[in-house]
Structures are given as structure tokens and as C-alpha cells.
């Protein structure tokens, strides 16, 4: 297979979200996609359902802009990668570009059962970051799950927390206002979503 240096396109922004099946990868992808649509942008996504994701590695490809042609992000073309579980960021390396890819990681460690059975220790987070470092421009890691549990008692809001951090640092081509409006429309004003988004955007890192 070939690898080519991606030519920068006028209108294309590629986001790759990963995690363990059940963590909220699809939900996060759907929110960002809908927010982009609400800003009048063209969106393409690709996901997998069924047996492929039962507590396994999950990927959601999201492409914003009219110059994107496929639903799958080509190699070396991700602008942002989001890993709701740090270990799962490593299979995404082929999509990363040292010059531009910004990574957002949750520090939560969900140990694969295979590691328990084979008594392989989960690598420490610095080790994972070290592996990723030479393939991306920037790594941002947050205790998103820990924060979510602290604030809501539930781990599932970690994805929204990470989204808040991305908006805080303007890592996405969508305004924070559109995202919170989208969340409000899809999930209602009540509940934890808007609160955790807000706390991530305003809180210290």
C-alpha cells in the first residue's frame, strides 16, 4: 500500500474518534457532526456496528468540508484525533501527520481482558505518549473520566468533557456556541451534558 503526503485542501477537516465500545465514541461523533451541519458545513462519517465493537477498539471517522470525498479519512490526514482510552490512540498512528495532527486523550486506563489473562501490565501513560509523540504535532491528555465521575458520578460524560477542552483551545472548526446549542437541542437543557461541557471549557487543565 502506498503512502502519500496529503496535499492541503481548501475545505477539509478530519476528526478521528476512538475508544472502547460502550464509552461514547459514536455519541461524541454524532454531536460534532450535527454541530458542523448546524454551521452549514458538509459532513461525511464512517462507523462500524455490531460484533465489531463489543468492548473492542472502536473508530468514528468524521470529515468536515466539501473537499472530502470518502467517508474514511485517508492515511496521514487527521487534523484531530480523540482517544477516550489512551491505548486505543496507537492504532490511529497511520492517520496522523507530525505537521498537523493534534491529539486529545483521556487518561483513563481500561485494561483489555487479554492483558489480565496473559498477565501483561498495562503500559504507563508516559510510555503511550512517548510512542504517539513522534507521529503527532501535539498531545493533550486530561483526566476526563475522573472529572466526569467527580462531577456527575458517571464515567460516560468523559467524552463531553474532552469536547469542552477541544473547544477551549479552538481545536475544532466549529464554535463553542454552536456545540452547546446542538447539545441543548439533542439532549435538552437539563442533565449533565451542558454542565460538564461548561466546566471543561472554563476550568483549569
Amino acid at each position: 500500500m502506498a503512502e502519500t503526503k496529503s496535499k492541503p485542501k481548501a475545505d477539509e477537516f478530519n476528526i478521528l474518534i476512538t475508544g472502547v465500545g460502550g464509552q461514547g465514541v459514536m455519541t461524541l461523533g454524532a454531536i460534532i457532526a450535527q454541530a458542523a451541519i448546524n454551521e452549514g458545513k458538509e459532513v461525511r462519517t464512517s462507523e462500524l456496528h455490531g460484533l465489531a465493537k463489543r468492548f473492542g477498539h472502536t473508530e468514528f471517522h468524521l470529515r468536515i468540508g466539501k473537499d472530502a470525498k470518502t467517508t474514511i479519512i485517508p492515511n496521514k490526514s487527521a487534523d484531530v484525533i480523540i482517544a477516550l482510552e489512551p491505548l486505543e490512540s496507537l492504532p490511529l498512528i497511520k492517520y496522523c501527520d507530525k505537521e498537523k495532527t493534534v491529539a486529545f486523550l483521556d487518561s483513563i486506563q481500561i485494561k483489555p481482558t487479554k492483558m489480565d489473562i496473559k498477565e501483561i501490565p498495562y503500559p504507563n501513560l508516559e510510555e503511550i505518549k512517548e510512542k504517539l509523540k513522534s507521529h503527532v504535532k501535539e498531545i493533550n491528555m486530561y483526566d476526563a473520566s475522573a472529572e466526569a465521575v467527580k462531577q456527575t458520578g458517571k464515567r460516560v460524560y468523559a467524552n463531553i468533557y474532552l469536547l469542552g477542552k477541544m473547544l477551549k483551545y479552538k481545536a475544532l472548526p466549529i464554535s463553542a456556541r454552536t456545540v452547546s446549542k446542538t447539545i441543548e437541542k439533542e439532549f435538552g437543557k437539563e442533565g449533565f451534558n451542558l454542565k460538564i461541557l461548561d466546566s471543561a471549557m472554563k476550568g483549569k487543565d
Partner: peptide
């Protein structure tokens, strides 16, 4: 294309 640049722990569905 270079082979997978780092050793990736494959998380199988379970």
C-alpha cells in the same frame, strides 16, 4: 507504506 510504526496492542471484541 511503513509497517505499523509502533507495536499496537489489539483490543479484540469480547
Amino acid at each position: 507504506e511503513k509497517k505499523t510504526p509502533v507495536d499496537v496492542f489489539k483490543r479484540d471484541p469480547i
